[in-house]
Design a protein around this nucleic acid. Structure first.
Lengths: 127, 127, 127, 127
DNA sequence: GTGGTCTAGACCACG
DNA sequence: GTGGTCTAGACCACC
């Protein structure tokens, strides 16, 4: 499992990590039941604080994507569907689309970019 | 021009305001040369501090979307195209799409949502 | 005499105007004794406020570059040498040079740019 | 690291500070990865407000000269080259050169002053 | 501990 | 009257 942290990115580190894990789940690389690295292990690998990893895992647990069992580690949840309401995602989606439009892209160009990204993200997902 | 601030949203207020104005520009409601509300006026309307509005306006100026002329107000720039690199927007786009996939939406469903949002955002924009 | 105002430039308008006139004096286009446009005339030409022009002229007078005689207009001073201490110009010079170095230019490249600008500015001046 | 603020200078304090740090970077005194003073520390040292320092640091970050990592401080960026376009610096350069010419210096005298300043600024830079 | 954000209020430069 | 700058002080997110 490859996770990278971009120090330039203003997104909080714990959120970058959570996003990275989300991407691996959606790509099918991390299947249900798989055991994730321990907090200490991942913190050492990425060179970040223990609390940062713990916060990332907690966020994923709140989404219903992983199960934290103290003592036996963190596993990918059996239902790989986030508990988040799709409607809550409309606002951030709208913000990104607005910026793409302002960057000069036309509607069909944007649809092309979106389709491209979706293919790259979820090779094995249902269409 | 309608602008709303969502106190529950963790996005900084000045960024919510800038995003709102971006949306109005992209929708065509705010055309080139139009004078935006004064810093004091908008601050009073939204119930926030002067500096918060000034920060939002400065961000829009850095994007090249508005022109700030001390003494004569803030106008929508003649270049309604942002100075931002479209490639920089792929990462945030990918993050939102990942979350939509995790929320259980299929690829065609997501394409539908995106098309719908694009229609709502840019009624008068080129396809 | 051609003067342009760049609304994008954060330099005050009156200073842009004063700088433009300074450039015309140094290029030899405006010689000693020449009558400058009246405040009203120049304000109308440039589409700016009367006070803006008056401030520009006052700044040039403080430099000793022009003579303001109420009732008979503004003329280029007989001594076309500014009253400003060259040492006071070191700090702004240093600031620009620092930024050129940070922009990646080498010392000889910068000397080349400076020589080029000097040739363009003062075709008829002493070497 | 020595930074001074000139209250008589009309340049904004945050810009004087940013310029001072730029000079220290270009001189090689501040190398890549070096940790700058904290916002609070520098504010106390210089006797200015926190926000003033934060604004200066943000400006340097926008130039790509420093990296701000909330929680762990501000470091000199690995790219010690500013993101600014050298062409944008020609106008301010021209303004300073014009004033030097008007102060009575000849072209070769000015070239001498420039060479002298460049030597003082960037002892270790490439020629 | 770090920087980020926001407020309230002041003064100044500019047009 | 416009925006720009600066202050003092507060609270929050992140590491």
């Amino acid at each position: 499992m490859l996770l990278t942290i971009d120090a330039t990115d203003r997104t909080p580190v714990y959120e970058q990590i959570a996003n990275g894990i989300r991407a691996h789940i959606v790509s099918g690389e991390l299947r249900e039941g798989v055991l994730l690295p321990t907090v200490r292990q991942l913190a050492a690998d990425l060179g970040v604080n223990l609390n940062t990893i713990a916060t990332a895992y907690r966020q994923l647990q709140d989404d219903g994507l992983v199960l934290i069992k103290p003592g036996s580690g963190v596993t990918v949840s059996s239902r790989v569907t986030s508990a988040r309401d799709p409607e809550d995602l409309r606002k951030p989606l709208r913000t990104v689309l607005t910026q793409l439009l302002l960057a000069g892209l036309g509607r069909t160009e944007i649809m092309g970019v979106v389709a491209e990204e979706l293919r790259a993200l979820a090779k094995g997902a249902r269409p």
